[in-house]
């Protein structure tokens, strides 16, 4: 398969080794005509630029399947996590009142019971507090509509 035109932009990170990386980089270089398009993509990921700070906040889960106990986090990491928790706690929450409009928490797929603690995201999607808070620590997006919640959070946090 000498003429591989496949755009190799990175291997699956489930099993990358440094060898894989250099190998892939190497084959990119040999691809000639496509070099420019490839190197465009090899830079820092454009869609994430504005979220750069947020991405570092995932340090609580330093890598997949690894979560470090709070005592082993650096001070900087602790501050970021504390900030994230602070932000999440400023999202409106309440007690489910039996409203017919929302019936089920789509994270745990369990129907809301009157008295459940629920959290309302700016997009108006509603989840159990326990279900969504854990998720928001990992990603500040609504799992149903992928609406980022951080901007809304930041404004309400600052005005508070």
């Amino acid at each position: 398969m000498g003429n591989c035109f496949w755009k190799i932009m990175g291997n699956c990170f489930s099993s990358p080794t440094s060898d894989d990386i250099s190998l892939l980089r190497g084959s990119n270089e040999r691809m000639g005509p496509r070099d420019s398009t490839i190197s465009d993509h090899l830079g820092p990921p454009p869609p994430y630029v504005s979220h750069e700070d947020e991405d570092h906040a995932y340090m609580y889960f330093p890598s997949p399947n690894v979560s470090r106990p709070a005592s082993q986090l650096t001070e900087e990491e602790q501050i970021r996590i504390a900030k994230r928790i602070g932000l999440i706690q400023h999202l409106p929450s309440g007690v489910y009142d039996g409203s017919k409009k929302i019936r089920e928490c789509v994270i745990c797929m369990i129907e809301f019971v009157v008295g459940d603690h629920v959290r309302y995201l700016p997009c108006m999607h509603t989840y159990h507090v326990d279900c969504i808070d854990d998720w928001l620590m990992r990603s500040l997006t609504c799992p149903s509509c992928m609406e980022p919640v951080e901007s809304a959070l930041l404004t309400s946090y600052e005005t508070n």
Binding site: F13, S14, P16, Y48, P64, S139
Partner: peptide, 27 residues
């Protein structure tokens, strides 16, 4: 091993080529 972006955690930004909405979601 299946290597599909929706099975990758959102914090996994090592390669940065996946959009957030292509990553794992708890739903």
């Amino acid at each position: 091993d299946v290597c599909i972006s929706i099975l990758h955690e959102p914090g996994d930004d090592k390669w940065g080529y996946e959009k957030a909405n292509e990553r794992w979601l708890p739903i």
